[in-house]
Nucleic acid binder design. Structure first.
Lengths: 111, 111
DNA sequence: AGCCTATACCTATAACTAATAGGTAATATA
DNA sequence: TATATTACCTATTAGTTATAGGTATAGGCT
C-alpha cells in the first residue's frame, strides 16, 4: 500500500539535486531543507529519497563528495560535477519539452 | 534494458487521457494521435501505453466505453466519467503544485 | 538524570507504472 | 501482390520514488 509512485515526480529528485548542487555545495540533511525551501514548500523529499539519490548520482559520476572533518557532526558535502552539469542540461531540456507539451494540451480549452 | 522510466512522465498518460476524453469522446487509436497533436508533438505515447491506461482508468470507473457498431473497423469509444473529472481536477492541482515547485527551484538563479 | 527533539547519516523493501516488444486482423494503397 | 495503415490487444521489464525503519550525537527542558 501507500503512494510509491505519485504523479509527476519521476525525475524530480535527480533534477532538483543536480540543480541545487550545481549552485553550491551542500550536505544531505541541508539539501532536504533546501529542496523544500527552493520549491516554496511545494515539493518535499524525505531523507529516504534524498540519500539514495545522492549515492546513485555519485556512483554515476554526476556528483562528487567530500567529508567535512572539522564539523561537530560528520557531514558529507556534495557538488555537481561537469558530467552532472551536462546531465542537468539534458534534464532541463526534457523538463521544458514535457511541461511545455502538457501545458499545451491543458491550454487547449482556450484555443 | 531501455528507457522504461523516462523523467517527468509519471502521471502524464493518466492526465492527458482524462483531459482529452473529458472534452470529447475518442477511440484509442485516435487518442494516440490526439496526444501527439495536442502536445505539439512534444509528447508521444505509444499504443502499448495508451491502451493499458484506458483499461486501467475504465476499471477504476474514471472512463466509460462504448463499442461503435456501424463503423468499418471495430472501435471502442471512451469518455471521462464524473468520477474521472474529479480525478482530473486532483491531477491538475498536483500538476500545478509540482510544476510550480520545480519552476520556482529552477528560477532561483535570477532571484 | 532522564527525556525529547533536532541533527546527520543510512538501508531494505514495496509499489507502481511507463515503455518496449511483441501479437492479431481487416482494409487501403502502391 | 505486397506493403502500409487502421485498430485493437497483452506480457514483461525496468527503474525509481516513497515508506518505514535504523544508528548515533548534541542540546534543551523538567
Amino acid at each position: 500500500m501507500s503512494k510509491t509512485n505519485p504523479p509527476f515526480m519521476s525525475g524530480v529528485p535527480e533534477l532538483l539535486v543536480l540543480r541545487l548542487l550545481s549552485q553550491q555545495e551542500m550536505y544531505g540533511y541541508e539539501l532536504v531543507r533546501a529542496i523544500r525551501h527552493s520549491t516554496l514548500e511545494s515539493i518535499s523529499l524525505a531523507e529516504g529519497v534524498v540519500y539514495p539519490t545522492l549515492h546513485s548520482l555519485e556512483s554515476r559520476g554526476l556528483l562528487r563528495s567530500r567529508e567535512a572533518s572539522n564539523s561537530v557532526r560528520p557531514r558529507v558535502y556534495y557538488k555537481t560535477t561537469a558530467r552532472g552539469k551536462r546531465r542537468l542540461k539534458e534534464l532541463l531540456q526534457d523538463w521544458d519539452r514535457v511541461s511545455g507539451g502538457i501545458n499545451a494540451a491543458l491550454g487547449e480549452l482556450y484555443a
